[in-house]
Nucleic acid binder design. Structure first.
Lengths: 213, 213
DNA sequence: CGTGACCTTGACGTCGATCAATATTTGTGG
DNA sequence: CCACAAATATTGATCGACGTCAAGGTCACG
């Protein structure tokens, strides 16, 4: 069922979030669809905290997770005044929203969004390389490296995505993703405490598989 | 061999192009690599006229054409102060370049780039759907529709890309692209006067194949 | 007219999709 | 806390779309 941010928050006359000093956003629970592909694009949004995925659908129901967003990332982009993607939370999240017209008025906001768009565009470029040219095993290795920020070596990564969601992100099926996890485990590159708790054991081999990054 | 824009243009002390009123850019011939993945990212660039493709390479030589650019599109994006993609002209082109610092100084420029980044990000989102979830035939249909702007029905489209370049864009091999063209021709959806001259005969069927757009 | 780049087509192999059965985890009510 | 149901994950068997390898064919250019 459709469930949009505005329905989950108190007063509809609430001020735009950027006016608020310390918690400049709406709190949203896990697995909430924040906006829908095709809906009229009124606002532009920013992840303050948590994780959000953007998805697109084909008429026959095939789905692609086109982007994974974390704090600072921007979404709610428009093509012909309609949202180009749906957005769904992967974790509880805080989301800030801005009137599109604020982009003209507020050069500080515009400048932040510009930098962020540049970063996201670069990430999309790498993702095109992943989707267009990498094998299943390489894709999964790349995915895990991207989620495991350089610093946290030895730490355990909690995946807040199901195998199906990972598959839809990597252009695979859930079975293939599962087999790739098993294969990485078999090779000793990663360890899985549970299906959604991953530890990278051999970062070097993973990087070689993923082709740098 | 490496051949960058600055080598092909007269004075190295030339003023930034946005200062020039009417031909605000550098002229570049076909098949010139304007910038190289990994090089220090000094400038940000804009296609004024012509077509440019952005490519990324894997260490073993696999290539992905990550984006096709036309007039107005922006490239030369940086990740860690290095260009994230190589850029090569597909046709003779005019290219404007800006100091990265100009983004701070010039809000008009920043605003234009912001709008353009948004559009390009949307295009990348569709492309992820294409690469992740579409069959070879669907990808080629989608590709042709994107190059044939709604208006020019009945017109003949000149592809300025080889089968290999199209394949690298669509995440296929050149043979598969060639077979897809043949299949579209066999079905009567397109006509090929020459390998690089396409006419779309049945736009409806093409759209159904490509899943809207 | 010959050479090289590009394209087409065919035969065959392979990686990942599909179909299916089982295992594991999560959530719910007694 | 346990029993059961539902969701999610794993693994195996088979199939098919696309990749690979190979042999011409077409076109532009000197």
């Amino acid at each position: 069922m459709r469930q949009i941010v505005e329905e989950r928050t108190g007063s509809p006359t609430r001020q735009p979030s950027y006016a608020e000093p310390h918690h400049p956003g709406l709190r949203v629970a896990t697995h909430v669809t924040v906006l829908h592909e095709g809906d009229p694009a009124r606002r532009i949004m920013e992840v303050v905290e948590g994780a959000v995925m953007l998805t697109k659908l084909l008429p026959d129901g095939r789905r692609q997770v086109v982007e994974l967003l974390g704090p600072g990332d921007v979404f709610g982009l428009a093509h012909d005044d309609a949202y180009a993607c749906s957005a769904e939370t992967l974790t509880p999240a805080t989301i800030a929203t801005h009137e599109r017209s604020a982009l003209e008025r507020d050069p500080v906001l515009a400048s932040r969004l510009l930098r962020r768009f540049e970063a996201q565009l670069c990430v999309m470029h790498s993702h095109a390389l992943v989707l267009g040219r990498m094998s299943a095993l390489e894709r999964v290795a790349f995915f895990l490296l991207r989620l495991m920020p350089e610093g946290m070596v030895g730490g355990t990564l909690h995946l807040s995505m199901t195998r199906q969601e990972i598959a839809d992100f990597l252009g695979l099926t859930l079975e293939t993703v599962s087999r790739a996890f098993s294969e990485l485990k078999r090779r000793g590159f990663v360890a899985l405490q549970r299906a959604d708790e991953v530890r990278i054991q051999d970062r070097g081999s993973m990087r070689r598989l993923a082709g740098a990054l």
